[in-house]
């Protein structure tokens, strides 16, 4: 597919674009927390895919290569709007615990909302690891390739992300878990 795109095949490119659109949009939105920037970052990513497809060297999966571009574009967009990329020690956006009702479905829905908010409060690097692991179902080796960092860094980021999530969640919620 990327070879056809490298030769300027616009139909192949459109097929690829549509196949990746939802996954990339989600990854970018979860990493940046900036819904208003998602389409711009996504199109910047796919622009690079279109114009650099001839540079894809087949040593990694096509999806890994594309997500790596999306990750770099996401971090660049955050820097452009002065949003910190690295972990920030000042924890904000602590979820509202009063809204939790310890009753089956209601509780589960609330739990999801609180966890989502807690993930949002992490740094971009941590959010990217969480999103790639739990939603995009990438292994840690692939995540290291996407983020351009050693495997141990991925594990460390994940460990810190989990620890922060626990710290962000109210004690009562931990009891429920």
């Amino acid at each position: 597919m990327l070879e056809r795109i490298a030769r300027g095949d616009m139909r192949a490119f459109e097929t690829l674009y549509r196949a990746y659109f939802a996954r990339l949009a989600r990854f970018i939105e979860r990493t940046t927390r900036r819904p208003e920037l998602v389409e711009e970052i996504l199109n910047d990513t796919m622009f690079v895919v279109s114009t650099s497809a001839h540079k894809f060297n087949r040593t990694s999966k096509a999806s890994t290569w594309i997500f790596a571009i999306a990750y770099r574009k996401s971090l660049k967009a955050l820097r452009d709007v002065d949003d910190p990329v690295e972990a920030d020690d000042a924890l904000e956006a602590v979820p509202d615990t009063d809204a939790i009702e310890p009753r089956d479905e209601v509780m589960r829905t609330q739990l999801r909302r609180i966890l989502t908010e807690a993930v949002d409060a992490l740094s971009a690097n941590h959010r990217a690891v969480i999103e790639l692991t739990y939603f995009q179902e990438a292994g840690y080796r692939e995540i290291a390739e996407i983020m351009g960092c050693p495997i141990e860094t991925v594990k460390t980021r994940m460990f810190h992300a989990r620890r922060r999530l626990k710290a962000l969640l109210p004690e009562r919620l931990e009891d429920i878990l």
Binding site: E14, A22, A25, R112, I130
Partner: peptide, 27 residues
């Protein structure tokens, strides 16, 4: 497992046609 479930939240759908048209104009 809870974390995995929590991360399965769906995000609002986006208009792929409009987004592609915007990129097509740049290529």
């Amino acid at each position: 497992r809870q974390l995995r479930e929590a991360n399965r939240v769906a995000l609002p759908e986006r208009d792929v046609d409009r987004a592609f048209a915007a990129l097509r104009a740049r290529l």
